[in-house]
Simulated scan of single mutants.
Amino acid sequence: MLKASVIISIYKDVEALNAILYALSKQTEPNFEIVIAEDGDAKEVSDYLTSEPYPDLKITHVTQEDLGWRKMTAVNKAVAKAQSDYLIFLDGDCIPHFKHVESHLENSQCGKTLIGRRVFLGNVYSEQVRKDPKKIAPLQKPLYYLSKIYSLHKDKVRNYEVGFISPFLHSLYKNKFLNLVGCNFSCYLDDFKKVNGYNEELPGAGGEDDDLCHRMMALGIEMKNIKFLSPVYHLDHPVRRSQADVNVRITAENMGNGLFYCKKGLDRHL
């Protein structure tokens, strides 16, 4: 029986997807599946996956017509295809640590959503990893990572400290509230179902993760901080945000009206 379903939200970026799948092929916990939530149906993505770049990985590819930003629908469709009762979410620009699946499963709890954080790599390191995913491996070694502090900061890395897996640092920060980020969180399928998944009525890019977080918390699902236990490495790229203010307004209205189970969500695809 599969221990987890890793849901990856993507849009056309095959290089980044290749780096993510490489890291998933190196996981210390191998008993999981991957469900790719493509917000579109790009030929380059299907051609890449048809080539079976990592044949040992169990991959399901979910697509939809490219009608503009509809990440929330794509993710809900992917969750509907998941074969495990535990969900681990990644964005298509974030490469997981080789212990990512193991760490999320070790810390999983019913009624709690695990929230991790990301290291924002600069342009130089991002391009290196895109061209050769194996270059992410040395950054996961604490001494090597520490030795690269100057070059990483010169490359405008952000959240450098998140790159260290450290139970000690985690013990110092574990009680601090972290908001949900779509690139690094996990939860039980039943908890995701309680709020009907992502709200597909949100029209914009930005704020959709906050919306999910607020609705989960309103129904008693706690946010569990796992900072310093399972980092992901964010590849540099132009920011794509639009109508985030509209999303925020809709979330506030729904919260004020006690609408925590979204009307247009996961149940449309089950």
Rank of each mutant, 00 (worst) to 15 (best):
I95A: 11
K26M: 14
L139S: 02
K131S: 12
E102A: 15
F168D: 11
A137H: 05
G68V: 11
A74Y: 00
V124Y: 07
R268D: 06
V239Q: 12
Y48S: 08
L189S: 05
L202G: 06
L114E: 13
T63A: 02
V239C: 06
L143T: 12
Y144H: 10
G182C: 02
F192M: 07
K148E: 12
P238L: 10
R117Y: 07
L178P: 02
Q27V: 12
L152Q: 03
K174M: 11
D210P: 01
D56S: 11
R240V: 13
D267G: 05
E52W: 10
K141A: 06
S171N: 14
F164R: 04
F260E: 00
E208V: 07
L87W: 15
V6Q: 02
E208I: 05
R70G: 00
K81Q: 14
S84P: 09
K77T: 04
V129K: 07
H237C: 15
K3L: 12
Y48G: 07
N76L: 00
T28S: 12
L121W: 02
A16N: 03
P203T: 15
D155C: 07
C94V: 09
I7F: 07
D13K: 05
N225W: 08
P231L: 12
E201W: 04
N175H: 10
K263W: 06
S242K: 15
L259K: 06
R158I: 04
L235N: 10
K134G: 09
L87R: 09
V35Q: 11
V239H: 08
I59E: 03
R158N: 06
L49F: 10
H170V: 15
S103V: 04
S147M: 12
Y86Q: 03
K12Y: 00
K264N: 15
G116T: 01
D56H: 10
R249L: 13
L266K: 00
